[in-house]
């Protein structure tokens, strides 16, 4: 069993308004075999958390630690973290002209293997065919340039295809359901469920409880204003769907401005 721990994580970015703290002490522990979900209002720091775990150099860790199997990975560059077992399905994947999808995935698989055990073309094609069939992807997507001109939905599917090809121990899926029609969402859920098992753990970031009907999580976390404010089982997502973030905030007595705050003036000591 592998373990990923986030301890008291504080993260800032530098933008035109100066140094801005986005994560203000996040704590989270997950193991392979578990499915976690994170929900939370826009701009609350969910993507910041995923990018920081993955090692995006734009984000600066001020305090706290990230540990993979007990070892701090904060000093590791993104590629080392990836080879150690982390995967991030990104909210906005990059487009790369001139590099085919297939050639990229083969390079990604081989990056995890030593020179004497590179995947054979035959084995690779077989695996690719299987996974693409599972995700209802047309064969020619393999020979297209990486994400170049892909529709929003195609990009999401392609992120899941990479997940299935690479088979990492831990995957963070950042809004893998956004912009998907209902059938596509089911296909993506089918892909993730195919990975489910004792050697795979995932952190699913979503705004919609609906995805969690298809991929039922073991733990649901609610994130607000840079912290995890509540954790619970799958039922928590349903409560949230009904009551919204305002209800939860007031129940917890938090001082957090929310976009649907119309009748409550945001100020100190509202609770």
């Amino acid at each position: 069993m592998d373990t990923l721990e986030v301890k008291n994580l504080h993260v800032a970015v530098d933008d035109e308004d100066g140094h801005q703290e986005i994560l203000k002490g996040v704590n989270l522990t997950m193991h392979t075999g578990e499915i976690h979900a994170i929900m939370g209002p826009n701009g609350t720091g969910k993507s910041t958390l995923s990018e920081t775990i993955m090692g995006n150099p734009k984000y600066e860790v001020g305090e706290g630690d990230i540990l993979l199997n007990g070892k701090s990975i904060l000093d590791w560059p993104v590629d080392k973290r990836a080879r150690a077992g982390l995967f991030l399905a990104m909210q906005y994947p990059a487009e790369i002209a001139g590099v085919t999808n297939a050639e990229f995935m083969r390079a990604a698989i081989n990056a995890r293997r030593d020179d004497d055990h590179q995947i054979s073309v035959r084995e690779f094609i077989k695996k690719l065919d299987d996974k693409m069939a599972l995700l209802d992807m047309p064969e020619e997507m393999a020979e297209r340039y990486l994400n170049q001109g892909f529709s929003g939905g195609e990009k999401k599917r392609n992120e899941i295809l990479q997940l299935l090809m690479i088979e990492p121990p831990f995957a963070i899926l950042d809004e893998i359901d956004s912009g998907l029609d209902i059938d596509a969402m089911k296909v993506v859920a089918k892909g993730v469920n195919a990975m489910r098992g004792p050697n795979f753990g995932t952190l699913i970031i979503t705004h919609y409880q609906r995805l969690l009907n298809y991929i039922v999580p073991d733990v649901v976390h609610i994130m607000m204003d840079g912290r995890i404010v509540k954790s619970g089982d799958a039922a928590l997502a349903e409560t949230l769907e009904k009551e919204g973030y305002v209800g939860l905030r007031d129940e917890l007595g938090l001082d957090v401005p929310l976009t649907d705050d119309t009748d409550i003036p945001s100020g100190k000591g509202e609770a």
């Binding site: 990836a82 080879r83 995967f87 990059a94 690479i166």
Partner: peptide
């Protein structure tokens, strides 16, 4: 682009 490729394990 570099970040994306490296996030899949490719060395720099």
């Amino acid at each position: 682009q570099m970040y994306y490729l490296m996030s899949r394990g490719l060395t720099k």
